[in-house]
Design a protein around this nucleic acid. Structure first.
Length: 388
RNA sequence: GGAGCAGUAGUUAAGACGGUUAUAACGCUGGCCUGUCACGCCAGAGGCCGAGGGUUCGAGUCCCUUCUGCUCCG
């Protein structure tokens, strides 16, 4: 038989194939302009174009497949036009894998004292210099295209926990109109940058359902669940997660924005979510809370002062292979910069291993066992999830 | 030898007229962190106010003695 070089064209960006299914959990592969992403996936957060304390080679070594950037931060500094001029965010920060950029919708929520929302968009003040800016559904697409983001997010309004039904309903409608404008500004197939829609709805199930239907209708490349983990109880988070996730279109990637703890992520996967991002592994790393196969470890505790054992004996990251808990405690207590890097390296490895393990379990049809194994590491959250 | 200043939490310091459980920062101990305004936030434990005596209803605060440190003058 003759050896012929067969050119297999890469699937087009946006192509999403589900390879395995185990209950509602699925394992798939999403194509982007900068490569494929295996799902379920955890995306390290690099708000200002850098995963704090972690260089791209470390990210690659730990098996990160896609990272996040933030439109709000990168637009303010260094600016989207400069990034376009310098060849986009990938050329700028030397991460050549896929990048998802959040739209700034969350900052509309988290920087609430600095902004004003109307039909046109959101006016806000820069947290850096106080200058005034306007984000619209259209401008946010333009900015993200200047970044050359692989997955762009539409502008949405994320309402605070406890917002009443009347406002939440108005907000859902506004988010839907903004989504439609985003879609019009970037029609399907207009480019290789993917565009994901975001559903909201606060803590009202009918509004969640309505929002998801409105967003689904616009035929985005993927669909996100927004506005969760904003201060509600663990039980409420679980309730809304398991209610909402199955309503998102099944044949497209589902993204649970900003969530969460290992417990949340494993439950998100169980509910049928494919993508997660969260600042917890990196922020907590910097603040001394480390996730391990033995549970959460607050490395600054005195009990670790003379602990020669590795942080997590089951982990194969550089930090766990090389240093003792005693040294990691010292670095943290002494405020050494290396502490941030080593801790972040470990926590991100832990989160990436978690989803890697989930993919393998789904493929083998053993996800339920895997899930209860992970949950048993976090008994407090498990108890809270079933608390009334 | 004389004069001045200072001795208050582990540390550095606040404590007008003497008046309820003596402050703060840092440190220490513990907790928190969910689309990063986040090397951040919250809480807690630490003090016979150098020692002794006196005045006073009441003294960290006033008076005397004493000890220690620093500075200056001889």
């Amino acid at each position: 038989m003759e050896q012929t070089a067969i050119q297999i064209p890469a699937p087009p960006a946006g192509d999403f194939k589900i390879l395995h299914q185990d209950g509602a959990a699925r394992c798939g592969i999403l194509q982007t302009a900068h490569g494929a992403v295996r799902t379920p996936i955890f995306m390290p957060v690099g708000t200002a174009g850098s995963v704090k304390g972690i260089a791209p080679d470390d990210l690659a070594a730990m098996g990160a497949e896609i990272i996040l950037g933030n439109t709000y931060h990168l637009y303010l500094r260094p600016g989207d036009e400069l990034l376009a001029e310098l060849g986009g965010l990938h050329a700028f920060n030397a991460w050549h894998g896929p990048i998802l950029t959040d739209s700034g919708g969350f900052q509309v929520f988290s920087l609430s004292d600095l902004r004003k929302i109307n039909e046109e968009g959101v006016t806000f003040r820069s947290h850096i210099d106080g200058s005034k800016h306007l984000f619209t559904p259209e401008s946010v697409i333009r900015v993200q295209r200047n970044f050359n983001s692989d997955i762009m997010m539409v502008l949405d309004e994320c309402v605070a926990y406890g917002t009443d039904r009347a406002y939440t309903e108005k907000s859902v409608e506004l988010t839907a109109r903004w989504a439609a404008r985003a879609r019009a500004a970037y029609p399907k197939g207009a480019g290789r940058n993917l565009l994901f829609g975001i559903s909201q709805g606060g803590f009202f199930k009918d509004l969640r359902e309505r929002s998801i239907a409105q967003i689904a209708e616009l035929d985005f490349d993927g669909n996100a669940l927004g506005g969760l983990s904003v201060g509600e109880s663990k039980a409420q988070l679980m309730d809304f997660l398991y209610y909402s996730a199955p309503l998102l279109p099944a044949h497209k990637p589902r993204y649970l924005m900003g969530v969460g703890t290992p417990f949340d992520i494993i439950n998100g996967i169980a509910a049928g979510v494919d993508m997660f991002d969260c600042v917890l592994p990196t922020r907590n790393a910097r603040n001394g809370t480390l996730y391990t196969s033995l549970g959460k470890v607050n490395i600054k505790r005195r009990e670790y002062a003379n602990d020669e054992s590795p942080l997590d004996p089951a982990c194969s990251c550089y930090t766990c292979r090389t240093f003792s808990r005693a040294y990691l405690r010292h670095l943290h207590v002494a405020g050494e910069i290396l502490s941030y890097r080593l801790n972040s390296l470990h926590n991100l490895t832990y989160f990436l291993d978690l989803v890697r393990g989930a993919r393998a379990a789904i493929a083998q049809g053993t996800f339920a066992e895997y899930k209860s194994e992970v949950e048993s590491i976090y008994p407090e959250e498990l108890a809270q999830a079933y608390a009334e």
